[in-house]
Amino acid sequence: MSSPQKPAAKKPAKRKVNPALMKPVQPDAALSAIVGSKPLPRGALTKNLWDYIKKNGLQDAKKRTQINADAALKVIFNGKKSVSMFEMTKLVSGHVKA
Rank of each mutant, 00 (worst) to 15 (best):
F86R: 06
A69S: 14
Y52H: 09
K10D: 06
T65L: 03
K23Y: 13
K10W: 01
T89D: 06
K38C: 00
Q59D: 03
S32I: 03
P12A: 10
G94M: 01
K81L: 03
V96K: 08
A9I: 14
V25D: 02
K14Q: 14
G79Y: 02
A72W: 04
N68F: 00
K80L: 07
L40N: 06
A71S: 14
N48S: 13
F86P: 00
K14P: 09
K14G: 06
A13K: 15
N48D: 14
V83Y: 01
N18S: 10
G43P: 04
A13S: 10
G36M: 06
K55C: 00
P39M: 04
A29S: 07
A13H: 06
T65P: 00
P27A: 02
F86W: 03
V75Q: 15
A29M: 01
K6A: 09
G43R: 15
P27G: 07
K14H: 12
I67H: 05
Q5R: 09
V92E: 05
N48Q: 15
T46W: 07
K80T: 02
K11P: 00
H95T: 03
L91F: 04
P27D: 07
L73Y: 14
A13P: 03
M85D: 14
Q26Y: 12
I34R: 02
A9R: 15
W50M: 15
N18W: 00
I76W: 10
P4D: 11
S82I: 06
P41I: 02
A9K: 15
K97V: 13
Y52K: 05
L40A: 06
L73M: 13
R15N: 04
A9C: 08
S84C: 02
K62L: 07
L49C: 09
L45W: 07
R42I: 10
P7L: 10
P41Q: 08
L21D: 13
G43F: 12
A29G: 01
S3A: 13
P4N: 13
W50K: 12
K63Y: 08
L91P: 11
V75G: 09
Q5W: 02
Q5H: 03
A98L: 04
I53T: 08
E87Y: 01
G57L: 02
V17H: 05
N56F: 05
P19D: 03
K10S: 08
Q66F: 06
K14D: 12
M88F: 04
A30F: 05
M1E: 11
R15D: 04
A20E: 14
A13T: 12
K97R: 13
L45H: 09
K62Y: 08
N18T: 02
V92Y: 07
I67K: 04
T89Y: 00
Q66V: 07
A61E: 13
D28I: 00
K23T: 15
L45F: 08
T89E: 05
D51C: 02
A98V: 06
W50Y: 15
T65H: 11
K11E: 07
V96C: 02
D51F: 12
W50P: 03
D51L: 12
A71E: 15
D60Q: 04
L49D: 12
L58N: 03
G57N: 11
A30Y: 02
A20K: 15
A69T: 09
K97S: 15
L21Q: 11
Q26W: 10
I34Y: 01
K97A: 13
M85C: 08
D70H: 05
P7S: 11
V35I: 09
W50L: 11
K97D: 13
K54Q: 05
V92A: 08
D60E: 07
N68E: 14
